[in-house]
Write a protein that binds this DNA or RNA. Structure first.
Lengths: 217, 217
DNA sequence: ACACTTTCTATTGTATACAATTGCGTTCCG
DNA sequence: CGGAACGCAATTGTATACAATAGAAAGTGT
C-alpha cells in the first residue's frame, strides 16, 4: 500500500495540472484533503513538496495558490534547465550502456509516431518526451541532479506550453533526440552536452515566439 | 512570534552542524522534538525542509540520519554549485548597483582582516564568505536560483571542509572576491562568470587535496 | 458617507492519540 | 550451534481536536 501523503501528492499534482485549474487560483488545505481523500496531515506533506517544486506558492500570509509564471520567470527556468540537463547529458554519455540506448531509441520511435499521426497525439508525445529525458537523468547517476531538476517545474511549464508548439516543433524534438542518441552511442559527452543545450534553447524559442504571437491577439 | 516549525528548523539545523553530531548518525523525530521543544508535527515540517537541503536523509525505511557525502558526491556538489553560482554572478553583474557594490567591498574587508589575524578567525571568515555569496545571489534576482542553490548543501559542505583549508586558500578567496568585485564594478557579466567559476573550482581543489592528504594518515 | 474599531469566520498551525510498519531480539526446531 | 519464525518494542504515518491568526464583515461614532 502506498503512503497517503504520496497519494495526496499525486492527486493534487494532477489536479493542479488539469484544465479546471487556472494559475493563481486559491486553494485550501481542507479542499485538497477532500480531493485526495485523506486528512490534512499528509496533505500538508504533499503541499510542502509541491511548494518545493514551485507548483504551489504560499502568498503573503500562508494562503495557498497555484503558481503562476511571468515570461521572464519562464525564461529563467529554461536557462536553468538548459544548464542542468546539459550537465546531465554530459554525465549520461559517460555512463551510457547498450540497454538504455536501446530503450531511448524505442521511446523516440513512440514519440515520433505520435507526432506523425494525422492528428498529432500530444499526450503520447509528452509522456514519451518525459520518459526520454527521465532516462537520461537516470543514467547521469547524480542524486543531486535528480533532486534539483524536477523541482525546476519542468512538467508544468511543458504542460501549459505544449499546446503552443507547432507540429514542426514536435518533429524537431524527435530529430534532436536522434542526434542525442547518436552522441550517446558514440559516448561523446561534449557532443551530447551541446545537443542538449540547443535542444532546450530551441524548445524555449518555439514557446516564446508562440506566446508572443498569442499576446498580439 | 516565530512559528514553531521555523524554530525547530533552526534548532535542528544548528544541532546537526554542531560538533557533537557525526555524519551518518541516526536520529528520531521524537528526539528532535525534545531538542527543539515542540511536538512532532512541526518537527516533521522542519525535517522535510532539511531533507530537501539534503542535510538529513531517510534511510531505506524512513529512518532519519544525518547526511554523509562521498568524495564523488562532494565533487558533484561543487560542479553544480560552480554552474549555478556562475550563472548567479553573471546575472548579478547585469543588475549590480553601487550600494551593493559598496557592501561587497565592506564584507570582503572583514573577511580579509579575519584571515590576516595571527590566528586566522575561521568563524568570521565563514560568516563573511556566506554574506558575500548571499549578496550576489540576492542581486541575481532569480527566485529559482535562490531556491536551488541553498539546497545544494552549500553551508554544510563548507562547514565540514573549512577546517581543511590552509591559510593560503583563505587568502586566495579574498583575492578572488576582489576580482569579482572588479568585474561587478565594470558590469562585465562574462568576466564575473569566469571568475566565479574558477573561484569555486579552486575551492574544491583546495578541499580535495587537503582531504587526500588526510586520507593518507 | 467615511474612517475606525470590533467581532466573527475562514484558514493555517500545533499537539496529542492512535494505527501501521519496521527492526531487533528471542525462542524454537533442525 | 545455525537459522527461520515469531513477537515485542521502537519509530514513523495519519487522523482529529483545538489554538492562533489573518481577512472579511458588520457595526459605531463623527
Amino acid at each position: 500500500m502506498t503512503r497517503a501523503s504520496d497519494r495526496a501528492y499525486r492527486k493534487i499534482r494532477s489536479f493542479i495540472l488539469s484544465d479546471d485549474v487556472h494559475p493563481g487560483m486559491q486553494l485550501t488545505e481542507e479542499r485538497l484533503a477532500e480531493i485526495s481523500g485523506v486528512s490534512r496531515t499528509p496533505v500538508r506533506d504533499a503541499v510542502q513538496r509541491l511548494e518545493n517544486e514551485m507548483l504551489l506558492v504560499r502568498s503573503a500570509s500562508k494562503r495557498l495558490s497555484v503558481a503562476d509564471w511571468s515570461h521572464d520567470e519562464i525564461d529563467e527556468i529554461f536557462s536553468l534547465r538548459a544548464m542542468l540537463e546539459s550537465h546531465a547529458a554530459e554525465r549520461a554519455a559517460q555512463r551510457m550502456d547498450d540497454e538504455s540506448l536501446a530503450r531511448l531509441r524505442a521511446i523516440n520511435v513512440t514519440l515520433t509516431e505520435a507526432v506523425n499521426r494525422p492528428e498529432a497525439d500530444i499526450a503520447t508525445f509528452l509522456e514519451a518526451n518525459r520518459q526520454f529525458h527521465g532516462l537520461i537523468l537516470d543514467r547521469a547517476q547524480s542524486p543531486r541532479l535528480s533532486q534539483l531538476l524536477p523541482s525546476l517545474v519542468e512538467q508544468p511549464v511543458v504542460r501549459r506550453t505544449a499546446a503552443q508548439y507547432s507540429r514542426d516543433d514536435l518533429i524537431q524534438s524527435g530529430i534532436d533526440h536522434e542526434e542525442l542518441i547518436a552522441a550517446f552511442a558514440a559516448r561523446d559527452s561534449k557532443w551530447a552536452r551541446a545537443v542538449m543545450t540547443s535542444h532546450i534553447r530551441r524548445a524555449f524559442h518555439s514557446f516564446s515566439s508562440a506566446t508572443s504571437r498569442i499576446a498580439k491577439d
